[in-house]
Amino acid sequence: EADPRLIESLSQMLSMGFSDEGGWLTRLLQTKNYDIGAALDTIQYSKHPPPL
């Protein structure tokens, strides 16, 4: 049985245009305790590393 928090967070992320191919988004949301903001921060950080 999927956690209702996961279903809600995942559906919101999917509606933003993200995909869960391979389950990466599910794993990220689980790691971030279903916090969409924290997940988005992680995605943003990985796409744009800080300048040295």
Score class of each variant (00 low, 15 high):
G22T: 06
P4K: 13
W24H: 13
W24C: 12
G37N: 08
K47E: 14
G22C: 06
P4C: 09
L28V: 08
M16V: 04
L25W: 12
P49H: 13
S46A: 11
Q30G: 05
D20W: 00
G37H: 14
P49C: 12
L29I: 05
Q12F: 11
T26S: 10
A2C: 07
Y34M: 07
L6W: 00
G22W: 00
A39E: 02
S46Y: 14
A38W: 04
E21I: 00
S19W: 01
M13R: 00
A38G: 08
L28C: 03
A39G: 02
L52A: 15
R27A: 11
L52V: 15
Q30A: 07
P51V: 09
L40G: 04
D20T: 00
A38H: 08
L40F: 05
A39H: 00
R27S: 12
T42Q: 11
D35W: 00
Q30L: 11
I43W: 02
T31Y: 08
L29D: 03
T26C: 03
S15D: 14
S11T: 12
A39W: 00
A39P: 01
K47Y: 10
S15F: 07
A2F: 15
L40N: 02
T31L: 11
A2H: 04
M13H: 00
I7F: 12
K32F: 04
L6V: 06
G23Q: 09
I43G: 03
Q44N: 08
D35I: 00
I7M: 12
R27M: 04
N33L: 03
G17H: 00
W24Y: 07
I7Q: 11
I7P: 09
E21P: 00
S9Q: 05
R27D: 09
L25R: 02
E8M: 09
L14H: 05
Q30P: 05
G37E: 14
D41G: 07
P50C: 11
Y45D: 15
A39D: 04
L14W: 06
L6I: 09
T42N: 08
S9I: 04
L10M: 10
A39C: 13
I36R: 04
E8W: 07
I7A: 13
E8S: 13
K47P: 14
L6D: 03
Q30H: 05
Y45M: 14
Q12W: 05
I36H: 06
H48T: 14
F18S: 02
M13V: 03
K32H: 10
L6E: 09
M13K: 01
I7N: 12
R27L: 05
G37M: 09
I43N: 03
T42D: 15
P50K: 14
Q30M: 09
Y34N: 08
F18H: 05
G22H: 04
Q12N: 07
L14E: 12
Y45G: 15
D3S: 05
Q12Y: 12
Y34W: 02
L29G: 02
S19Q: 08
Y45H: 15
N33W: 01
D41E: 13
G22S: 11
S11N: 09
M16N: 07
P50H: 11
A39Y: 00
L6G: 04
G37A: 12
E21Q: 08
Q44G: 14
M16P: 00
E1V: 04
Q12V: 10
Y45V: 15
P51T: 14
K47L: 09
T26N: 00
Y45T: 15
I36D: 03
A39M: 00
Q12G: 04
M16R: 11
P51M: 12
R5F: 06
G23T: 03
R5Y: 06
T26R: 07
S9M: 05
E1S: 05
R5S: 07
M16A: 05
Y34S: 06
F18E: 03
S11G: 15
E8K: 14
Q12I: 14
S11E: 11
E1G: 09
I7W: 11
F18Q: 02
L10F: 02
I43M: 12
L10K: 08
L40H: 04
G37F: 13
Y34A: 06
Y45A: 15
S9F: 05
L52E: 15
S9V: 10
G23H: 07
S46E: 14
G17S: 01
A38C: 09
P49S: 12
A39N: 01
I7G: 10
L52P: 02
E8N: 14
T31R: 13
G37K: 15
T31A: 13
P49G: 13
Q44E: 12
D35C: 04
S15K: 15
